[in-house]
Amino acid sequence: MNNLTASFKGLFSKTTGIASDPLSILINKEVGAHIRSWRFIVLILLVVLTFLASTYVSSANLRSAINNAQDPDQAFLYLKLLTNTDNSVPAFHVFLNFLAPLLGIALGFDAINSERNGGTLTRLMAQPIYRDNLLIAKFLGPLIIVGTLLSALILFLIGGGLIATGVRMEPQELLRIVGFVILSVIYIGFWLSLSILLSIRFKQAATSALTAIGIWLFFTVFFPIVINLLVHALLPNPNYLSEAQLIKYNELILNLLRLSPGQLYTDATTTLLIPSVRSLGPVSMEQMIGAIPSPLGVKDSLLIVWPQLSGLIAATVVCFALSYYIFMRKEIRS
């Protein structure tokens, strides 16, 4: 009987690939460890509370936004639930621009150095698993949790809006909201890969956490100040420029600001959630003549945000590739 049970388990592991796959086992381990931690519970509560606060304010002002005949986006009810605000509480995508880096940093700043300091890294490497499996699991595990959380919040938003209003969701709205969720996961993935890189580079978790928070504060607070100082010091006064020169002046400032991941995320989410946004740069008077304020299609909006999306993906891939290179060459001792 025992031999029959063992044979059945072996056959099940071969057919499903679950029990014999080290990567899936490590991912399940990471997901379970994060779900049980108080740190993740606190972060979940922050994201949920900000989501409820922003959607409550947007739903309270939803009727006035829909009845605004001058708004070209008045027909997109579910997008209004994510973007409409009375300036007392920011919209959810603005909140997420602030919380997403903290979420990614908190889930990855001690991914490797905590295993090393706790003595469990040598035990893991003693098992028949590859180093890259461990690193991929440290990256994919938190992303699975974040993607599930954002998807659950969006489903809650759609279900609540359907029950409260009875208005069905348009396919264009669904595609835009799905794109917003994917973009948010990629943005969190960048900060997660950066924090994992710092956790490999530094031995102490406090050092990697402070370094990641310092990088986030630099891009959030100090980077726009540095760009403004450099522009005012090196470029001529914009009051003495022609219209064409002023457009190039503003384009240069925007391109420099887009070196920040937060600016890329803001541009992309604004374009996806507000269909009437037709350009992310300065527009001349000749280009505005004859333009009718109307929402763009999903394809056109994706073409506008493709540079921002590719920039976030490239930054995430670079950070993860550096983490992979350093971790594969790093000597692990007990």
Rank of each mutant, 00 (worst) to 15 (best):
P22R: 11
L26E: 07
N28Q: 11
E30I: 15
V31R: 04
V31S: 03
G32R: 14
G32W: 08
H34I: 14
I35K: 08
I35W: 08
R36A: 08
V42T: 13
V42R: 00
L45K: 04
L45P: 04
T50L: 13
F51C: 02
F51G: 02
L52D: 10
A53T: 11
A53S: 04
S54W: 06
S54Q: 06
T55W: 02
V57C: 00
V57F: 03
S58R: 05
S59H: 09
S59K: 13
N61S: 12
R63P: 00
R63S: 12
R63K: 05
S64G: 07
S64E: 14
A65G: 05
A69E: 04
A69W: 05
A69H: 05
A69L: 12
D73L: 00
Q74I: 03
Q74N: 14
F76G: 09
F76P: 01
Y78D: 02
K80A: 04
K80S: 07
L82G: 02
L82F: 03
T83E: 06
N84L: 05
T85F: 06
N87V: 09
N87I: 12
N87H: 11
N87M: 11
S88W: 06
S88R: 10
V89W: 11
A91G: 10
A91W: 11
F92H: 00
H93Y: 08
H93I: 00
V94F: 12
V94I: 13
L96I: 14
L96C: 02
N97P: 01
F98Y: 14
L99Y: 07
P101G: 14
L103F: 11
L103W: 08
L103C: 06
L107H: 05
L107Y: 03
G108E: 14
G108M: 13
D110F: 08
